[in-house]
Amino acid sequence: MHELSIAQSLLAIIEDEMTKHGKEKLLTVKVRHGRLSAIVPEALETAFEVLTVDSRLAGSKLEMEETPVVLRCRACGREFSPEGDSAFAPCPGCGEELGHTVLSGRELYIEYLELE
């Protein structure tokens, strides 16, 4: 379960930001993750809860938002989102099946922190 190590990294970043800004309490952290990032939201939420128990971050809220996959066709340049979870994603414009550029969907970052 790589979500545990991801949660540990997120918490290290959060602690650094809290120290940098002189804040003592985390209310909310919003994490944006791409559909291709292989994150299981429930597993990350569980890891976050387990790692924050008995810490100054206990009781804070983890919000997650998934970014859809957006591809650019290598043949015609059209941007599109593939349907479903299929790895097979022909371009709806020209039918090209391979070599598309991934424009979004691999992200994993903290969008914002709400601190006191």
Rank of each mutant, 00 (worst) to 15 (best):
E66W: 01
L57H: 12
E49Q: 14
S55I: 13
T46D: 01
T67L: 14
P90M: 06
E63D: 11
E97T: 14
M64L: 15
R32A: 04
C94F: 07
A47N: 01
A87K: 13
P92G: 12
A38M: 05
E65G: 02
T52D: 00
D85A: 11
R32L: 12
C76I: 08
S60Q: 11
H33S: 09
E45W: 00
R72A: 14
E65K: 08
C94A: 09
G34P: 00
L44R: 01
A89K: 14
L62F: 06
A58E: 15
A75K: 12
S81I: 01
L57N: 11
A89M: 11
T52E: 02
E97N: 10
R78P: 00
I39S: 06
G84W: 06
E66D: 00
S86N: 12
F88M: 07
S81V: 04
V50P: 00
G99L: 13
A87C: 09
P90E: 08
P92F: 10
E66P: 00
C91F: 07
V31W: 00
F80T: 03
T46M: 04
R74Q: 15
L57A: 07
T67W: 02
V53K: 15
E45F: 00
L62E: 02
G34L: 06
F48Y: 15
T67R: 07
L51A: 11
H100T: 10
V53R: 15
E49Y: 02
A43R: 01
V70Q: 12
L62R: 01
E66N: 02
T67Y: 03
C73N: 11
V70E: 09
V31N: 01
L51V: 07
L44Q: 03
L36F: 06
S37W: 02
V70K: 09
E42G: 07
D54R: 11
E63S: 08
V69T: 13
V50C: 12
E83F: 07
R74L: 13
A75L: 10
G84E: 06
P68T: 03
R32P: 00
T46S: 03
F80Y: 12
C94L: 05
R72C: 10
R35Y: 08
H33F: 15
A89V: 10
G59D: 04
P82G: 10
A75V: 09
R72F: 04
A43N: 05
D54Y: 04
R78I: 07
T46L: 10
V40Q: 14
G84S: 05
H33Y: 15
I39G: 05
G77E: 03
R32V: 13
L44C: 09
A89F: 13
G95V: 07
A47C: 15
L51N: 05
I39N: 08
V53E: 14
H100F: 07
E63N: 09
A58N: 13
L98S: 13
A58W: 01
G84N: 06
T46Y: 08
F80Q: 01
E45Y: 00
R35P: 01
